[in-house]
Amino acid sequence: MIIGDSNNHVALESLREILSLSQKTDREIARGITLIEENLIQKKALVSINSNPTSKQTKCVGITGAAGVGKSTLLNKLLQSQNLSKHRIAVIAIDPSSKRTRGAVLGDRIRITESSIFEFVYFRSMATRGAYGGVNKSIESILYFLRNSGFDLIIIETVGVGQNEIEISEYVDLVIHVIDCNTGDEVQLEKAGLMEISDVFFINIRGDSINHQFVSKLKNHVTNSPSTPTSTQRVILGSSLSGKGSDEIWDLIDLIDKDSFLERNK
């Protein structure tokens, strides 16, 4: 482990330098994320080297849902529908690593159809590198790093998930769960896990077919929770491709007032 420790030392020195810069370019941010990821730098190590921690609120939003359901496509419309110069936005988009070879094809960037978006948004594709919770082992450190690099909104797109990959809920203020309207019967809705931690169900209508039964069951489900009568889960009927419903999501992002990250770390 001696080699690892000395590498960490070098990486932390570089990260200290990057964090101390008042203005960070994309290149410095990109380098910082690589250093964190390669050396598995813990958040507490970053806290200890950061001489000027930010006190500004940073909103963190997670987009999750099954593979191919329309997460990146929704992200594209979310970014298109905003005046991006108002915000400083970072996106972390995660795709799976191969267990056999550790390689990955990271293909979330291609859903962003207007390249001008990247002038305003720092976009980083990441692989899971052996993590199975839907995100990546370094996500907490990377969020800390991005918060301290001047971003006011961070959007994390998880890998395509099933029922049990709920780690995203530990790191964000708002979990948007993109869901297909043919996702099963009402017993599926009662299950713990992803259904439980989603703040927003974004039903992605594809083509003309709307399964009205599923939509009304889901709406009923979120408004009639016996144990949590004040449940704030909500349902948006929208379209990732056309962007219908993205204004409602922005309204919810604007309403985020607590800073979960700071609260958690008190």
Partner: peptide, 16 residues
């Protein structure tokens, strides 16, 4: 892209 993935690289595909 897939070949490099299978050789252990992380490949970012740009799209067209």
């Amino acid at each position: 892209s897939r070949t490099l993935r299978d050789a252990g690289f992380e490949v970012i595909y740009s799209g067209l």
